[in-house]
Computed example of a mutant assay.
Amino acid sequence: MPHLSLEYSANLRGKVDFTELCLKLRDAVLGTGLFEIGAIRVRAFEASAWAVADALPENGFVDMSFRIGKGRSQEEKKRAGEAIFSTATNAMSRLLETQNFALSLEIREIESTLSWKKNAMHDRLRKQ
């Protein structure tokens, strides 16, 4: 864990390179020094149906959810959130200049006793 999920309105297809954005956000998460490389997941999902604000068809959004395990201080979580949000803001600055775009981020801590994982990448990456 950490897992960063982006949900975005379908009207942003072609306006944002979501593969590139995922790579930039992965680098931002890694750059915090708080998470192992093998645990980082960043993915984007298109919402084919949405209604935002006054329902203009050009209204769009990117909503980011960052799920992390417990054990980091409030300051560390805030630093991670600021790194992610700053990276997303920079990548989508053109959209933010319009009056039809919303960007959001929420950090959620996962209760470890209710989270199961197996990750075969850790051994390989820890040896590098």
Rank of each mutant, 00 (worst) to 15 (best):
V16Y: 05
N90I: 04
T89N: 01
A39T: 00
E97I: 08
V29Q: 03
L105H: 07
S5K: 14
E20H: 04
N119Y: 13
G69T: 11
D54M: 13
S65N: 04
I110E: 11
A80M: 08
T19Y: 01
I107V: 15
Y8D: 12
V29M: 09
K24V: 09
D27S: 11
K117T: 11
K70E: 15
A28P: 12
G33N: 10
E46A: 14
R13W: 01
I84P: 10
W116R: 00
R41C: 03
L96F: 00
K118E: 14
R126V: 14
A49S: 03
R72Q: 02
T32Y: 11
S65W: 00
S112V: 04
N100F: 04
R72E: 02
R67W: 10
F35C: 07
A39H: 05
A55G: 09
M1R: 00
S112T: 04
T32M: 09
T19V: 07
S112P: 15
T32C: 12
V52S: 05
A49P: 00
A91N: 01
L96W: 01
N90E: 15
V62K: 00
E109N: 02
W50C: 06
R41G: 09
R94P: 07
H3F: 04
A10N: 15
I110V: 14
E75D: 13
R13M: 11
S86T: 11
E75Y: 05
R108W: 03
A53F: 11
A88V: 03
A28Q: 06
L95I: 07
